[in-house]
Computed example of a mutant assay.
Amino acid sequence: MHVIDAVVAASCAVIVLGACSLRGSDRNRERARSGCLISAALLVIAVLNLLVELADRAGDPAAVALHSATLVMPLVLVGLGLMGIRGVTAEAGAATPLRVVAIGAHPDDLELAAGGTLARWASEGAHVHGLVMSHGSRGGDAERRIHEAVAGAHAMGLVDIDVLDHPDTCLAEHANEMVLAIEDTLRRIEPDIIITHSHHDAHQDHAAVHDAVMRAARRATSILCFESPSVTSEFSPTAFVDISAHLPAKIAAVHRHRDQSGKPYMGADRLRGMAAFRGSQGRVEFAEGFEQMRMLVGDHRAPSIVRSEHRAETLEIRTASTRLEPVDGRQP
């Protein structure tokens, strides 16, 4: 009888452990830990039942003690199960951090176009992840630019950044590969907001990344497009993020990219001027502007991050209906 109990317990442990090993999103990690604890308890029960069976057959007095342990272990198992349920319930009741994925074509694109926004959201508790499509080898030293991308991400407070190696200046020729990479990132992170390049951009790589994001994120609820130095006159931001308190972090992140320091749009004065221009439109001191492909404002995580003109008391991205012309259309 103890052998049968042991087989059943071991089988259940294998099933639970197998379910825990399946790759899932970050949201499921706590559930996986609870499942692994239950698996361990089931395996202990299986071992104890086998020991009881062997002790019984040998007439060992220890069989009584082992049998008592097998009676106690189900209670331990129930306790672990209740702990797991409690953890999942607490996780559901707690505020889930906003998850953001920022996608750029080259190292420095995220810092230049949305460095203040990303720094602000990260400082407010959002989990911000970066994805860059190329090393930027045609515009500088590839190895150096990878390290600078990591340094810039650190300056903005990003959780992590992935720098891929698709060919610089030829990203449109690798659209399918980019879509697959973006889909994999979105599946892993499950972001609430995606920000990326605008379609209204003179740089062919920026436009190619925008198109790839729109394909990969076809089911995403919120997508914002940022303002690179190479946007065209058709770029028309309808949302503004107040970065007044985070402009220094943006400038610091941009200055991590020393390989590109000779470019005119990398200077602090240019960055401050653009932020002041967009800030005047958003009715704040400094801001970054975005085109809204679509934006879900009813999410319970949004109030501490986003403000809408129609719900200014609870949200934080400000919307405007005026058309703005960029002050700089240079291509990086």
Rank of each mutant, 00 (worst) to 15 (best):
H203Q: 13
R86E: 12
H197E: 08
A13W: 00
H255T: 12
R187S: 15
S244Y: 05
G59Y: 05
R272Q: 12
S21E: 11
E313V: 11
A40R: 00
R218G: 13
G136N: 05
S39I: 06
G130D: 03
P61N: 04
T232G: 07
E173Q: 09
S244K: 00
R33A: 15
M214I: 15
V327P: 01
D160N: 08
W121I: 08
A287D: 05
A65Y: 10
F235H: 02
T238P: 05
D108W: 01
V306G: 03
T185Y: 03
C20P: 00
A153E: 02
A32I: 04
P191R: 01
E183A: 04
V132P: 01
F290L: 04
H147E: 15
S236P: 02
R120D: 12
F290E: 03
N49H: 13
V14L: 09
A312T: 12
A122F: 05
R307P: 06
A122Q: 04
S236F: 01
A41E: 07
T221C: 11
A181M: 03
E285A: 13
G116T: 11
D242L: 07
I103T: 08
G115L: 06
R144D: 06
V7Q: 13
P107N: 05
A275W: 06
P303S: 06
E325S: 10
A181V: 08
P264I: 04
L42H: 01
R31Y: 11
L315Q: 04
S261A: 14
R120T: 12
S308T: 15
A69K: 00
A202M: 07
R294H: 14
G273N: 10
V213Q: 03
R57N: 13
S123K: 00
L158N: 07
D26G: 12
A175E: 13
I4P: 04
R57A: 15
V297Y: 05
H166P: 03
A10T: 05
L224P: 01
D211A: 11
K263V: 12
S123Y: 03
A217D: 05
A149M: 07
F226G: 08
A220R: 01
K250E: 14
S39G: 11
T70A: 03
P237G: 02
R311H: 14
M274Q: 10
G115F: 03
R29N: 12
I305D: 07
V128N: 06
A276Q: 04
A113F: 03
P237F: 00
H310Q: 15
S308Q: 08
H106Y: 08
A153C: 10
V297C: 05
V284F: 06
A149I: 10
G24Q: 06
V78E: 09
R323Y: 11
Q260P: 06
A239G: 10
F286C: 14
D160W: 01
A217Y: 04
G157R: 00
I103H: 02
T70H: 01
A175I: 02
R145Y: 03
I193W: 04
L66K: 03
H67S: 14
I4R: 08
I45Y: 11
V231L: 04
R270T: 14
I161T: 14
T196Q: 04
H135Y: 13
A153V: 15
R31G: 13
A46F: 03
D168H: 02
T89F: 05
A69M: 10
A287L: 10
R57C: 10
T232A: 07
Q331A: 10
T185Q: 12
V52A: 04
P332Y: 09
E183R: 13
V44R: 00
V78C: 09
Y265E: 15
E325G: 11
H135V: 14
D184K: 07
